[in-house]
Design a protein around this nucleic acid. Structure first.
Lengths: 210, 210
DNA sequence: TGGACACTACTGCAATTTGCAGTAGTGTCA
DNA sequence: TGACACTACTGCAAATTGCAGTAGTGTCCA
């Protein structure tokens, strides 16, 4: 049985198209650069290139590195062909997992203090990612883009992340102000304020613009 | 071995705290209301309540429905206690999977036409979700909120979704305009435009505001 | 100079989660 | 009355994660 190409397989294959990498480099690079679009575990990222070799889309050889060896992977022309055919399939819908939102939705089992803590945790997770992307862009200006021919793609990609993070940060501020007006997390019900917000949302109006 | 409570288990338990549901209702409800914060497969959502029963957090009984039976689940007081203790653990970082972005990042294997198609697909996925949330808010105004005591939480949650979708839609427009200026997907390199955008991003400036 | 500790460079295995097929009853429209 | 969508699940294989384990390397500090 030949293995099946998943989206993750194509992600790794696309990285291999840039240059040959060792398994370790591949996991590091994939986690750094793809984390916000296609987050995958280190374990999987180690397995994918092996699958590519089985499919004939990559070759592998051991390279000495001191007293041990590293696996180096390189794309084949069949691999490049497979990449070109990737566009054939329909793009999967976005999938967004935010535990903080889930906790917020069921915040009536805890205190307003719990809600504020959840918002703080979300904020610090987002801040970390946000800063990482801004720093990355800054490093491109100083040190140059690692693959300058692909700079136009990286920039479009980074724009998405930055705008996303800014929106989430603005929402966190908004949520904090709302929670400040709650006497408790429970049984607040359909207050005038809630009804007003519902009305605005039903009209598809933005609530974050001041 | 007692099973382990995952975030998904708490999500289902929180739903059970609202009212008793059948397994089928639970999967439908969870997929409808939690899809954008905690998307889980129907299969898993059928398994979770069984786990809750094993843990003593829910009870189950079969209810006749014509010529077949349905499993009805109900939360126990131990279940309610477990929910209150949920806040003890750290909230996991957001995890955002957008295949369209991955394809965009490696768009140099295809044509600008492929990029535009990917953007169209993303746009239609987002539009569908966006519309669903706006409609839901509108239905709350007409038909009333199914759990009015929790309306303040739903509204905060919905605000997040709407702002997120609006941001993505704006970015799609932005990306389309950028792609219009590309002669090809490949080897565009560090043009003046790309450098300008990189500079703005490194300063953490928004590129979507006109 | 040697011990702690972080980083490189992976593999194995159990547990979680998904996807998909299959089974079977129900409601509705033509 | 047959097709087809919806209700209401279960079983199983495959994808993915998490974690522990193994082992060499580099660096800092005492």
């Amino acid at each position: 049985m030949t293995p099946k190409m998943t989206t993750s397989s194509y992600a790794v294959l696309a990285l291999l198209d840039l240059k040959p990498w060792t398994g370790y480099e591949l996991t590091q690079q994939a986690q750094r650069s793809l984390r916000y679009a296609w987050p995958k575990s280190e374990r999987l990222l180690y397995s994918e290139p092996k699958k590519l070799v089985k499919l004939g889309y990559a070759t592998t050889h051991k390279e000495p590195a001191g007293n041990r060896t590293r696996n180096v992977y390189e794309i084949t022309s069949e691999g490049r062909q497979a990449l070109r055919n990737w566009t054939g399939s329909r793009t999967a819908a976005p999938r967004i997992e935010i535990e903080a939102l889930l906790r917020l939705l069921f915040a009536d089992h805890g205190s307003t203090e719990d809600v504020r803590r959840t918002l703080d945790e979300l904020e610090s997770d987002i801040a970390e990612h946000h800063q990482a992307i801004v720093d990355l862009m800054a490093s491109y200006l100083d040190g140059g883009h690692p693959f300058p021919r692909r700079a136009h793609l990286s920039v479009l990609f980074a724009t998405f992340q930055i705008e996303m993070f800014k929106t989430i940060e603005k929402w966190i501020e908004f949520a904090r102000h709302e929670v400040d007006d709650w006497p408790d997390t429970r049984d607040l019900g359909m207050t005038e304020r809630t009804e007003e917000l519902t009305r605005l949302l039903a009209q598809d109006r933005s609530l974050l613009t001041h």
